[in-house]
Computed example of a mutant assay.
Amino acid sequence: MIDVVGLRALRSVAALGSLVRAADQLGFTASAVSQQIKRLERQLGVPVLSPAGRGVVLTPAGQALVDRAPEVFQALERCADAAQSVADGAPRGVIRVVAFSTAVRGLLAPALPRLSSNCPDLRPRITEQDPEEALHSVDAGTADLALVHDADGLPTALPPSLVQRHVHTDVGDVVMHRTHPLARCDAPLAETDLASHSWVTSPPGTVCHQWFRRLFAQAPEEPDVRHLIDDFATQLSLVSSGEVVALVPRLARPPLGAELVARPLRRQPKREVHAAWRRSADTSPAIRALLAELGFPDSGRPR
């Protein structure tokens, strides 16, 4: 019989391109992953990896094995779901969740007390991961559910083995000190209201920096960016000085307190948040319980 641990290791090496990256993703050492794959090769009687420079590539036999691996993992998932259904379908055990940081803060953290109260035998385990890595983790079977956001309006590519459901629309507001001139504006802010002010913003390469650049796409001059800070709590500490303002997603925003206020934009930047899981786990009581606490109590199949 094929070793499932070795098969999962081989699939991760194929997806990530190296033993080291696969080991990090699976939570093993590179040596342990190598041994798992060698055990798989002994069982099959054929090599599945071949050296390539400092890395490795799949042999034709290894590629054939990886191509059929999803069927194996889906069958195992259905077996587990069947066992849970026989045991009355109650959510129990561990559910492994991967999510980007602001989804952990704004969606998962508020849902955990309700989940604990309604499903005392279910134990969530949360790991912060960016959307692309999170989808790979679910696809590879090292996580059960991912919360991901679109990339600047473009949906994240979904592996065919996964399904997803829209769970939230996140929007960005401008945050400033209560004494700042923008704080006196009652109407949603237009791009022309923002041009003469100084900013702290997220670094280039982030969704929030793309939001910020779009605000000034038609401006005749570059905005006055004083600080580039990735952490939103740190951004707000700088906003408290009264010298800069910030564009902050609502999911990322801690309570503002008495010193700070948020003002909406006339054209609100937004990103869509989806939950994704394996098709073979569609009837999982644990996944359905967590989705219910995220605001989806129905038991129908996802759109």
Rank of each mutant, 00 (worst) to 15 (best):
L26G: 12
S280G: 14
S237N: 10
V57C: 07
G141A: 02
T102Q: 12
A82M: 11
M176Q: 12
T156M: 08
T192Q: 15
D231C: 05
F296D: 13
Q218C: 10
A61M: 07
R184S: 11
S161M: 11
H177M: 09
L265W: 02
V48C: 03
S116V: 15
E222D: 05
L26S: 07
E259T: 13
D152G: 09
L76E: 12
S237E: 13
P160E: 10
V174K: 02
A289D: 01
A15H: 05
A190Q: 13
D121R: 14
E191M: 09
T29F: 10
Q210T: 11
P223Q: 07
A14F: 01
G295R: 12
H274M: 13
R178Q: 15
T179H: 13
L291C: 07
A146E: 02
P70Q: 10
R92A: 08
R178L: 14
W211C: 00
P203K: 11
V48A: 02
P255R: 09
Q63G: 08
S280I: 09
D24I: 04
W211Q: 09
V175P: 01
S34R: 12
G172F: 06
A183H: 04
Q210I: 13
Q218L: 09
D24K: 11
I287K: 03
H197M: 08
A252D: 04
T29V: 13
E293F: 03
P124I: 10
T156A: 13
L145V: 08
A262N: 06
V33C: 03
P160R: 07
T142N: 09
S117I: 14
C185L: 10
S116N: 11
T169P: 00
L189G: 04
P131E: 00
A87T: 08
I229T: 05
A87W: 13
R301K: 11
F73H: 05
V167N: 12
S85M: 14
R253S: 10
V167S: 05
R266C: 05
D150Y: 04
H149R: 13
V13A: 02
F216W: 00
R278K: 10
L158T: 01
E128V: 08
G27W: 15
G17V: 10
Q164S: 14
A30K: 00
E77K: 04
K270I: 07
S196M: 09
A111Q: 08
L44R: 03
A14G: 10
Q74H: 14
L44H: 03
G172P: 10
P254W: 12
P113T: 06
V57N: 02
G62V: 03
L58P: 01
H180C: 02
L189Q: 01
A219V: 06
E191Y: 05
P188S: 04
L7R: 07
D224G: 06
A289I: 13
G17Y: 02
S299N: 07
L154G: 04
R301W: 04
S12H: 09
A90Y: 02
V200L: 07
R92K: 11
G6P: 01
